[in-house]
Simulated scan of single mutants.
Amino acid sequence: MITVLFFAGIREEVGMDQLQVEKQDITVSQLKEYLQTEYQLSSLQQVMVAVNESFVTEDETLKDRDTVAFIPPVSGG
């Protein structure tokens, strides 16, 4: 099982701050595709992705018990 964490606008779009996904040995890209389809997410294209608190690319393979965080761009002023 993979724990997925959402922040800021993505959290609001999903309606929760985390969820458990019963998948493993998939890439970050495949996880994003699954979440976009399952939860109708439109904002995953421009996010940074961290797995177990380290930034990764979309080619990273996810394993059981990984924690994936989708971090949207931030702006400030």
Rank of each mutant, 00 (worst) to 15 (best):
D17W: 10
Y39I: 00
I71V: 15
I10T: 02
A8W: 12
E13T: 09
Q20R: 06
S29F: 12
V74R: 03
F6R: 08
R65S: 10
Q46W: 12
V51L: 14
D17P: 04
Q40L: 07
T37A: 12
V49H: 04
S43H: 15
Q18I: 00
V47C: 13
V56M: 04
S75K: 01
D17M: 08
T27F: 01
A8G: 06
A50D: 05
K23M: 06
Q30A: 14
D64Q: 15
V21G: 08
S75Q: 10
Q24L: 04
G9V: 05
R65N: 14
T67I: 12
Q18G: 01
F6C: 09
P72A: 06
A69Y: 07
L5I: 13
S54Y: 07
T3N: 13
S43W: 15
P73T: 13
E12Q: 09
Q46C: 00
V14I: 14
E58G: 15
S43M: 13
G77H: 11
T67D: 00
F7A: 07
N52A: 05
M16F: 05
E33S: 04
E13C: 02
L41P: 11
Q30H: 11
S29H: 10
P73L: 03
K32C: 08
V49A: 09
G77P: 13
G77E: 03
F70V: 06
E22W: 01
Q36L: 04
Q24I: 07
P73A: 10
R65V: 14
T57Y: 06
F70D: 02
E53R: 13
T27V: 07
K32N: 02
E22P: 03
E13D: 03
S29C: 07
K63T: 14
V51F: 09
E53Q: 12
R11W: 03
S42K: 15
M48A: 10
M48T: 07
L41F: 09
G15N: 01
R11G: 00
V21F: 04
I10R: 00
R11V: 06
D17H: 04
A8N: 11
D25C: 08
E22A: 05
E22I: 02
R11N: 00
S54F: 10
L35E: 03
P72W: 11
L19T: 11
E13Y: 00
E38D: 13
I71C: 02
E58A: 15
P72T: 09
T61F: 09
G9Y: 07
G77T: 10
L19P: 02
S42Q: 13
S75I: 07
F55M: 11
V51E: 03
Q30K: 03
K63W: 09
V4I: 15
L31S: 13
M1Y: 01
T27S: 15
E22C: 04
Q30T: 10
Q18E: 12
E22K: 11
I71M: 14
D25Q: 01
S43P: 06
E22S: 14
E12M: 05
Q46D: 11
T67F: 02
D59R: 13
Y39Q: 02
K32A: 02
I26A: 12
E33F: 10
A8E: 09
I26N: 04
L44D: 07
T37F: 01
R65L: 15
D25Y: 01
